[in-house]
Design a protein around this nucleic acid. Sequence first.
DNA 1: GAGTGGTCTAGACCACACA
DNA 2: GTGTGGTCTAGACCACTCT
Lengths: 231, 231
Amino acid sequence: MSERVTWQSIQAEIRRRISEREWRPGELIPGEVLLAEEFGCARATVNRALRQLAESGLVERRRKGGTHVSRHPVRKAVLNIPIIRHQVEQSGSLYSHKLISRHSARAPKTICKTMMLPAGKKQVHLKSLHFSDERPFMFEDRWVNLETVPQISNVDFERTNANEWLIEHALFTHGDITFSAANASEAVAKLLDIDVDAAIFMINRVTWNGLDSITSVQLAYAPGFIMQTRI
Amino acid sequence: MSERVTWQSIQAEIRRRISEREWRPGELIPGEVLLAEEFGCARATVNRALRQLAESGLVERRRKGGTHVSRHPVRKAVLNIPIIRHQVEQSGSLYSHKLISRHSARAPKTICKTMMLPAGKKQVHLKSLHFSDERPFMFEDRWVNLETVPQISNVDFERTNANEWLIEHALFTHGDITFSAANASEAVAKLLDIDVDAAIFMINRVTWNGLDSITSVQLAYAPGFIMQTRI
DNA sequence: GAGTGGTCTAGACCACACA
DNA sequence: GTGTGGTCTAGACCACTCT
């Protein structure tokens, strides 16, 4: 008895043919109809297998042009952007956080620009520290758009941290993220209890609801932080 | 005339209901059959829309349990892992590279361990510098497994860089990647023409073909490098 | 046992990109 | 025009998981 043909099994077979160079980079592979005949299944099944391979970058598909093995498989890594609490708790540590300051203030030009707001707009400015087992783990410097999230004025951030409150109360449609490295400033070094100029892993994130910006946040991770993924 | 119902339109409508809190976090949403009736389409179409929403983390699905709006939408960012040359050329700069050293040597313990090889195994050790408009852009320190890629002994890396040669000649099935920040050592600072202790963005990558490791590489990016993505 | 999502099928029409 | 992938349909059976 032969196993039932699934899209996964087809995908595995196609991956094999590509990785063992039966089908070489740049080469045109058979069309969906042909493959469906070969594997003895419906075209939709082959389509599902190939569509996902295209999403992961291993093949490239064009109408009329057919499906080609990628010459330069631009591999895509999927990064999970977790809630800070989970990031800490997943490593088996105890999470806690502390609100350092909270003001309403005119945001600096750069912030207003990235959030597409008129310069000098008043926003809520939050600074907080996140701890892993009582040790400073990450420093968060956040601006929140008062127009899109007015309720924020009444929230007690001593209890809930801003990250989780916003996720719960201001769902975003998309966000822009950058990752970089920077030397710790005096202020950040003091907060994270590290040396001035130590290498800090930085994440900058701006989140949006449609065309309205919600929040712009900079996360400075204490040395030793590593972001992992699989490709 | 009403537009034809597509999985994208259904997905957009579901996103809207979630972001406008018609369906709240944690809530059970109607089953596929019900939604198909509501939208006047086949169940498969609803399935496609919901399946993809589940992949992106906005909803969670379980057989028998149904589909729930995620309480903590763990958002997933897709990172493109590009070829170094493209990384440089996309910013409109001229790419070049230089092989600094090439030896066969016993790899250090840590490398052998991450590559799952017996300690002290001989490997090819390559160091190279990548330039953007003649300025040092990134330093690459690579070990290549001679057993999985024996042909590497005969390659001229003055012309082709190792990154591109390996992509072309040793397709990998998966890889592990980490991102971190580090202070520049003296050696790296000299090569990249930057200050000692400057903050360096580091990428470590080990790639595999099935259970065999292919290469382990550490990329040290000169200050100013930023990795971007969208969520 | 029963209800939900996961998948496959066979067929159809459409949209795009190429000649 | 023509060939390819993209998608929808209506129906079916299966697999998981909850009760």
